[in-house]
């Protein structure tokens, strides 16, 4: 699924002969022995990450109705009643299509939301569980995160609101922009090291905008 990007820095590592294979770290015996072996329970308390293949998804499930109510209670104050960002500065969570990411279709600004931009549904569960609600992170139960994830995906027409959201249902979601990403092709520009007569003419195309740069106390807010 994932092709390793061959960019300059990675190539440098490989060609430099320092490519680390697992064999370089074959040790079964520890040399220093510092630290302790964490218990499964200790690891489980912190091991909250979810991968696109579903690794890490906990047991549990949540309904659309629960998700709607939980969203209203924990999320709407910032992201808006309709999860459209509420017209404020918080990110919108619904709307848009990958099509609207192209400049020709939607000049101004790409319309980036979970539905239009995020390549994997697993990331929605992962991020809500680790970071939201903003200011009270890691406070929701797994059932609650499933319910809210299901609600947001349904609002983006990516999940059937009659079906509960759980690990299997989440793994089945194919995000519209899953093929919207390419690996890093840099260096993608080559500026010749020209020293003399590099241009015939040079014109100023833009100047710093007045009024956007904060001054005084403004810059400490």
């Amino acid at each position: 699924m994932f092709k390793f990007p061959v960019n300059k820095s990675v190539l440098g590592l490989v060609l430099g002969g320092v490519l680390m294979t697992s064999a370089a770290y074959a040790g079964d015996e520890m040399k220093y022995g510092f630290g302790v072996k964490p218990s499964d329970k200790e690891i489980a308390g912190w091991d909250i990450d979810i991968r696109p293949d579903g690794q890490g998804l906990p047991a549990g499930s949540g309904s659309y109705e629960d998700g709607e109510a939980l969203y209203a209670e924990h999320c709407a104050a910032c992201h808006g009643d309709f999860a459209d960002g509420g017209g404020g500065r918080y990110p919108p969570l619904v709307g848009g299509t990958p099509n609207e990411l192209a400049q020709s279709v939607r000049p101004g600004q790409p319309h980036k939301t979970i539905g239009s931009y995020w390549p994997y549904a697993s990331t929605v569960f992962d991020y809500i569980k680790r970071a939201m609600p903003f200011g009270n992170a890691q406070s929701l139960t797994d059932d609650e995160v499933y319910a809210i994830t299901g609600f947001l995906l349904a609002e983006n027409d990516l999940h059937d609101s009659d079906e509960p959201m759980d690990a299997e249902a989440l793994k089945a979601v194919v995000m519209p922009n899953v093929d919207g990403f390419v690996d890093d092709p840099r260096p993608d520009v080559k500026n010749p090291h020209c020293m003399k007569d590099c241009f015939k003419s040079v014109e100023i195309t833009s100047k710093a905008t007045l009024g956007v740069t904060p001054t005084g106390e403004e810059a400490l807010r």
């Binding site: 192209a102 931009y117 390419v182």
Partner: peptide, 30 residues
């Protein structure tokens, strides 16, 4: 340690570079 990337929010929704055709570059580390 794992055998594939996690594609978390800060490497999908953010820290990706959208081109004018709507495709986006990911894992643009250097």
């Amino acid at each position: 340690f794992g055998d594939m990337p996690w594609h978390h929010r800060e490497e999908t929704s953010k820290y990706t570079d959208t081109l004018s055709n709507g495709k986006s570059r990911r894992f643009t580390w250097s």
